[in-house]
């Protein structure tokens, strides 16, 4: 279990969520599914809004944190990124990197 997964597990427990026994963290699965209305089903977009599926974790986490900090320009995501904790951003980074 890597550090990010542990973090997300701790996060889930803190929020009263239950990680399933079959290895899928359902809290993170839901958070990733939430993105689909803009970024496409499973994070796959073929138009202007970027795809997230298969994005390298370093890029996902780096971009989200930079947009959250206001150091990377964006039209929409600097606002949405500000609503997520760093632990949630790490967990989603793992999710999209592992779901190509």
């Amino acid at each position: 279990m890597n550090k990010a997964f542990l973090l997300c597990g701790l996060l889930a427990v803190a929020q009263g969520a239950i990680a399933s026994t079959d290895g899928v963290d359902k809290t993170v699965r839901f958070m990733a599914a939430n993105c689909a209305y803009c970024h496409g089903p499973d994070g796959r977009s073929t138009s202007a809004i970027p795809s997230l599926a298969g994005m390298h974790k370093t890029r996902f986490v780096g971009s989200m944190k930079a947009m959250k900090a206001g150091t990377q320009a964006s039209l929409v995501m600097y606002q949405i990124a500000a609503g997520y904790s760093d632990a949630e951003i790490d967990a989603m980074g793992d999710w999209f990197a592992n779901n190509k």
């Binding site: 969520a17 239950i18 399933s20 359902k26 609503g83 949630e88």
Partner: peptide, 26 residues
Amino acid sequence: GKMCAAALVELLNGRPLVIAPVITNT
């Protein structure tokens, strides 16, 4: 719709609910 689906999957399998901590609207 996804929140409800997530809840129903747990309820119909007799498991505690997974609570969505955060959702967005754009």
